[in-house]
Simulated assay, not measured.
Amino acid sequence: MHNIKIEQTSQPKEKPAPDQLGFGHYFSDHMFVLDYTEGIGWHDPRIIPYQPISLDPSAMIFHYGQSVFEGLKAYITVDGEALLFRPDANFKRLNRSNERLCIPAIDEQLALEALKQLVAVDREWIPTAPGTSLYIRPFIIATEENLGVHPSKKYQFIIIMSPSGSYYKEGINPVKIMVEQQFVRAVKGGTGEAKTGGNYASALKGQEIADREGYSQTLWLDGKENRYVEEVGSMNIFFKIAGTVVTPELNGSILPGITRDSMIQVLKSKGIPVEERRISIDEVVEAYHNGTLEEVFGTGTAAVISPVGELKYLDEKMSINKGEIGEVSQMLYDTLTGIQYGKIEDSFDWTIRL
């Protein structure tokens, strides 16, 4: 057991109404903090009242972008228990991101223990209305006061939590996405497979263009040939073509999504053919024209699944499954949320009950 100090807040915040939650607007009463100092390692684990961070203007995070983060959720099950979904996978991925960004590895067991204790302290912040959850954001920033270009010698690992509303208020509405032609999100050998802030900053321009044209997300192609499908702004992407579900293989520039991995395991367990391979945008367009493109959907922590009702490439707008959610998309959504809210048995051993 790790000795995590706990300082309870003396001024609990008022909790927002369930119908006002949205995403990422409100934060629970406490946060977890862990410091790193070169020569000492990670030290001083503590749960403290949620508060601003004080950093020197020369802190390296501001200048060279050494940061990584994760996103996961806690849920209240139908029988009133608090539950985490695959947190161990998130901390494993955090360490893979750390490796790419030259950030010292964290102790995954300490991180998991800290998360459990933090959720226990702020358990009342887990909303209970249908479809709601407590979003959890672990992140690491470089804090050394230095303008030299080198890996920082000091870091902070912090976990904050935010009650989140139901992603789909009136049922699952398929989204419209457009294929980005001008910009690229990542290239093989870059930081695309790490969950680092810079990837999201570089994707904002494509998102801005999509918003302007009335689309909710950008579908990124590879940065080399501008042909092969990679991922959507905040999600991995899947195509159901002639009965087989295809998703781009992990190639070094695609984020290895935990929801993506969960979906692949569910598909296999149901006997639905699934392939991880390179898929070109031309193959998708051809499947659309010959009538074999049956479903398109994105997967991620926030929405679980986002069916795609329209896909725009160049000047062509492709309507997918008459703009409605497909059978496989619905099954995947029902299965994953069923496990997350304790409605169906977790045969994959993914959940941790607190």
Rank of each mutant, 00 (worst) to 15 (best):
I264E: 03
E275V: 07
T299R: 02
I279G: 01
G257I: 11
I254R: 04
I272D: 01
V296H: 01
S234N: 09
D282N: 08
K195H: 11
E283C: 06
I305T: 14
E230M: 11
L221I: 10
V246D: 00
F183E: 06
F183G: 04
S253L: 03
V245I: 08
P248E: 09
E231M: 09
G252H: 10
L250I: 15
G300V: 13
K312G: 00
D261V: 08
N199T: 10
S234F: 04
V246N: 00
I254T: 13
E283L: 05
S216V: 14
Y200I: 10
D282W: 02
T301M: 12
G243P: 01
M235Y: 11
G257M: 10
S202P: 00
Y288L: 03
L221K: 07
G197H: 09
Q181R: 14
R260F: 13
G214A: 12
T301K: 12
Q217E: 15
I281Q: 00
N199Y: 07
I237Y: 05
E208I: 13
I241A: 01
A242V: 02
G206I: 10
S262E: 00
A210C: 07
E230K: 13
F239D: 04
G233S: 15
E310P: 00
T191L: 15
D282M: 05
T218S: 15
L219G: 10
I254Y: 03
L204H: 11
E286L: 08
R278I: 10
V304F: 11
T218E: 01
I272A: 04
R260H: 14
L255C: 12
G243N: 02
R260S: 12
R185P: 04
V184H: 12
V308Y: 06
D261P: 01
S202V: 11
S253Q: 13
V285L: 03
G291P: 08
E213S: 02
F297M: 08
A287K: 02
K205D: 01
P307N: 04
G206M: 07
S306P: 05
G214T: 13
E276R: 12
E193F: 14
P273K: 01
L219N: 11
F239P: 04
G298M: 07
V304A: 06
G206T: 10
G298C: 14
A186D: 04
S216P: 00
R278C: 06
I209G: 00
D261W: 08
E286Y: 09
V308D: 02
E208D: 09
L267T: 11
Y313I: 09
Y313D: 00
N226A: 11
S306G: 11
R185E: 02
L204W: 14
E294S: 08
L255Y: 12
G252C: 09
N290P: 01
E295Q: 05
E286D: 12
R277Y: 03
M235P: 07
T218Y: 02
G271S: 07
E230F: 06
K205Q: 14
R277H: 03
G214V: 13
L311P: 02
K188Q: 14
K240R: 14
S306V: 11
D261H: 14
V308E: 01
